[in-house]
């Protein structure tokens, strides 16, 4: 899906937990997430903390969208 959408010229950031799969399917901008059943959250945290975690991940994704890449790039910093 990532490739098909990106091939129309729209930048796509793939937020996923199993990065090797994302690399295999061919995503160009990849942001690793927390866990398979809750990529953008962590039920072990309090509500506010969890939201802060999500905010950080989304900011990372937005940064990725603003970064030129010339190949597959994992934004894990």
């Amino acid at each position: 899906m990532v490739k098909e959408i990106e091939s129309t010229g729209l930048p796509v950031v793939h937020m996923c937990t199993v990065v090797p799969i994302s690399l295999t399917v061919g995503a160009n901008r990849i942001v690793p997430t927390i866990a398979i059943p809750h990529p953008l959250g962590n039920p072990a945290l309090g509500k506010e903390e969890e939201k802060e975690l999500r905010r950080k991940l989304v900011r990372k994704a937005l940064d990725a969208l603003q970064t030129e890449v010339d190949g597959q790039t994992v934004f894990d910093k």
């Binding site: 990532v2 098909e4 950031v13 937990t17």
Partner: peptide
């Protein structure tokens, strides 16, 4: 699915996509 979605996104003037997977 993605081809149809992309068409819709383009038509709506979307600039970028966040795609999440589990």
């Amino acid at each position: 699915f993605a081809a149809e979605i992309a068409k819709d996104l383009q038509a709506a003037g979307v600039d970028a996509v966040i795609l999440t997977s589990t």
